[in-house]
Design a binder for these strands. Sequence first.
RNA 1: GGUCCGGUAGUUCAGCUGGUUAGAACGCCGGCCUGUCACGCCGGAGGCCGCGGGUUCGAGUCCCGUCCGGACCGCCA
Length: 569
Amino acid sequence: MKGTSYRTHGCGDLRPDHIGCEVKVAGWVRRVRDMGQFVFLDLRDRSGIVQLYAPKSSPMYEVLRTLGREWVIQAEGTVRRRESPNPNLPTGEIEIEVETLTLLNRSEVPPFLIEDETDGLEELRLRYRYLDLRRPIMQRRLELRAQFLEVVRRYLRENGFLEVETPMLIRSTPEGARDFLVPSRLKPGSFYALPQSPQLLKQLLMIAGIDRYFQIARCFRDEDYRGDRQAEFTQLDCELSFVSQSEVLSIFTGLVQAVFQELIGVEIGEIPTLTYAEAMSRYGSDKPDLRYGLAWEEVSEWASQTEVPFWKGRRVFQLHLAQAKASRKLQEKWQEVAKSHGIPSLSIAQKEGEKISTSLQKFFTAQSLPPEAEGLWLWAAGENLPHAGLGALRSAVIQDLGLKPERPWALAWIIDFPLFEQDEQGKLAPAHHPFVHPHPEDLEYLEQAPLKVRGLCYDLVINGYEIMSGSLRCHAPELQMRIFRLLGFSEEEAQDKFGFLLEALGRGAPPHGGCAFGIDRWIMLLAGGSSLRDVIAFPKTASGSDLMLNAPAPLDPEQKAEILRWISS
RNA sequence: GGUCCGGUAGUUCAGCUGGUUAGAACGCCGGCCUGUCACGCCGGAGGCCGCGGGUUCGAGUCCCGUCCGGACCGCCA
């Protein structure tokens, strides 16, 4: 740390090399320990903690012992070797014998411990976020986030990307999440929307010839929040022209490798690719947690040759754990899980040597299974097996048996997502967003069998979290219009909502595609946390309020009246 | 929008089927202590039991409403 008029060193920077030096430090009082004949004081700043010392014979003794926690002080003194070192502290071999002390500011007694292991609950920590962020562990998380941005910027710049900012006040588009709206004063009755993502703007940048773009973009979605979902969140938003899907994946594999390597020293190697169809049938999820090898296997053929009557003519999926044992209670719980996810039949068997215990007793002996196979089996059967149910069962089994991950990090590209899905009313809806380029092999039956059409899109899944999502986009206006028509937009509606895009596509749009990383979530994983709020400096609660600023808040009456005038005209 | 859990000292919590003066630990304040670093020891202060209503002789405890926080479902292209 560079010195200023307030300090010559950071508290945590002092080492035995400094013994004998006259130093000046400034920071917050972490704790005072008055021993009678002398006093110790732990002083904290961002660089760490150093112990101040004053013997009773010094005039500083009386000064130090009366200081309160979190008071801001400046101390001047001589670095000396400790009589009893503390090996748990980087500065544990030295202390500063204080000669001059300046009180820079007092502090109220803090409502919770300003320590890595705090006693404050999250609600309190959010209310006094500036105190929460004073905790070393929180500062390390902010540091990790800053390093992340640094690595990402460097990698992308080295690969020819241009960082471009796009506006926050844009217009609302009909699909997707609910928009946050901003009333316009100069055009009463009209509204801006805050971007859910810079999707269309970055496509326009490609048409502008920017070629390779990125942005650390703040995005806003007015939906309900969760531990891993905030009203505003940060995306690493990227778009490239003149690239194939595999080229996009290869460029961003490099980025992901660089981040893991430089931030946490982990070599992730190549990232395996899984199709959507494989992911769904093996793991029951399009974002499987692949730290666990456990996978469903279709055994319909084998099942039809057994005596089990309700397996005949049905599809049967099997989950086998060679080492595992499940109590009756757990088995009942899994039956509930299966039932609540619409799985028609779940059978469970436990085999040890020649002994087998199963609800299939009547139709089934130990000989029905290969002799060397042991452990726990689950069989889900039905004409129609909802994949989500298989996924929920797999998660439940992993959690309830307390399975240990086979590896700390499991990454995968998931590709070949369907382009469309059906909503509740049976209407066609984009599975991803309406600008995804259909898979060229499936283009011919776009109109005939739209649900079978795959998109040129890809997700990156890390430990069961969707960290990045992207696609190649439609660059031909005719193709984009075909998609809009399938989604039920008339020519006029499409022109009204997306006219600017269709027009731009008709003015020399290059083939292009890109992606967006949810970086809050990714940094959360890298920091080893399970809450987004721990890696965002000033996060909001699950109901979207900021407990420190007390936002959202009612308006002044005059302000409110003015807004209402704009809105209703 | 729905379901569930919680709200008691500065903090984290306990408080049984309703029953005298609502507790503990940490923190805070005062005193003592020659090497602490979660210092130790002695003493003390500290409570609209989230808010409003109801039931009851009597409510922290039961009921209704409301606000706040959390988890989950819906939602989040």
